[in-house]
Computed example of a mutant assay.
Amino acid sequence: MSPNVLLISIHYEYANMIFEGNKQVEFRRVRPRHLSEGDLILVYATSPEKALLGVLEVEKVVEMSPNKLWNIVKDKAGINQETFQKYYKNSQIAFAIFFKNPFSFDSPITIEKLREEWKDFRPPQCYHYLKDREINFIKSMTKYDILALSNKCRGYQTELLPQV
């Protein structure tokens, strides 16, 4: 079973915190459909970076009231409670994507380079599920088989191997 691959835009500051290990959960006001354990998230860092930074494996997706969620994520959020509450202001439901195995590319793939290979590339406002041809663009640019990171593809793997 192949994992779903979701491309999401994340504010550059938070995207970098993820790959530095200082943020272990991503917050959303809208739950991405068809996202579950073992699926993959391709992280696009917003301006001024404007680049793909790497891949995350989804551990779980939860939904609950913002107050309950904060009590669970406060040590993993990478943000303070004030920022969290501001983000979820007037929201009855909060969604959190817990992830594991953050894998950063050897070097970020800039929007310019992306558009050389993937002519109609546009950073998503919310999220975008990648099609096979788009996954192949990423493989050719990074030289990594990103699907190999998911437990949905393989039973157990200790590292992401370069594409040969």
Score class of each variant (00 low, 15 high):
Asn71Ile: 00
Gly155Tyr: 14
Asn80His: 08
Ile72Val: 14
Phe137Met: 01
Asn101Trp: 10
Val25Ile: 07
Lys23Met: 05
Asn136Tyr: 03
Asn101Thr: 11
Ser150Phe: 11
Ile10Gly: 10
Trp70Met: 03
Asn4Thr: 07
Ser65Arg: 10
Pro123Ser: 13
Phe103Ala: 11
Arg154Met: 12
Val5Ile: 13
Val55Tyr: 06
Cys153Val: 15
Tyr156Trp: 13
Lys143Ser: 13
Ala96Lys: 05
Lys100Leu: 00
Gly54Cys: 09
Glu59Asp: 10
Asn67Gly: 07
Ile97Ala: 01
Asp145Met: 02
Ser150Asp: 09
Leu114Pro: 05
Phe105Trp: 10
Phe99Glu: 08
Arg115Gln: 13
Glu59Asn: 13
Tyr156Lys: 15
Ile146Arg: 07
Ile109Gln: 08
Thr142Ile: 02
Arg31Gln: 10
Lys113Leu: 15
Arg33Asp: 10
Gly78Val: 01
Gly38Lys: 08
Asp75Ile: 00
Gln157Ser: 15
Pro123Val: 00
Lys89Arg: 15
Leu114Ile: 00
Trp70Thr: 03
Arg133Gly: 01
Lys113Arg: 15
Lys50Asp: 14
Val30Ala: 10
Lys152Asn: 10
Ser2Trp: 07
Gln24Ile: 04
Pro108Glu: 10
Val5Gly: 00
Pro162Trp: 13
Lys131Glu: 08
Asn80Met: 02
Leu40Tyr: 03
Tyr88Asn: 05
Ser140Glu: 07
Leu130Thr: 03
Glu13Phe: 11
Cys126Glu: 14
Leu35Thr: 12
Asp75Glu: 08
Ile41Tyr: 05
Phe99Cys: 04
Ser150Glu: 12
Asn136Gln: 09
Phe95Trp: 12
Gly78Ser: 09
Glu26Met: 04
Ile111Phe: 03
Gly38His: 07
Lys60Cys: 10
Cys126His: 06
Gly54Ala: 02
His128Thr: 06
Ser107Gly: 05
Ile72Gln: 04
Trp70Gln: 04
Asn16Gln: 08
Leu147Met: 10
Ser2Gly: 10
Ser140Gly: 01
Asn90Lys: 14
Pro123Trp: 07
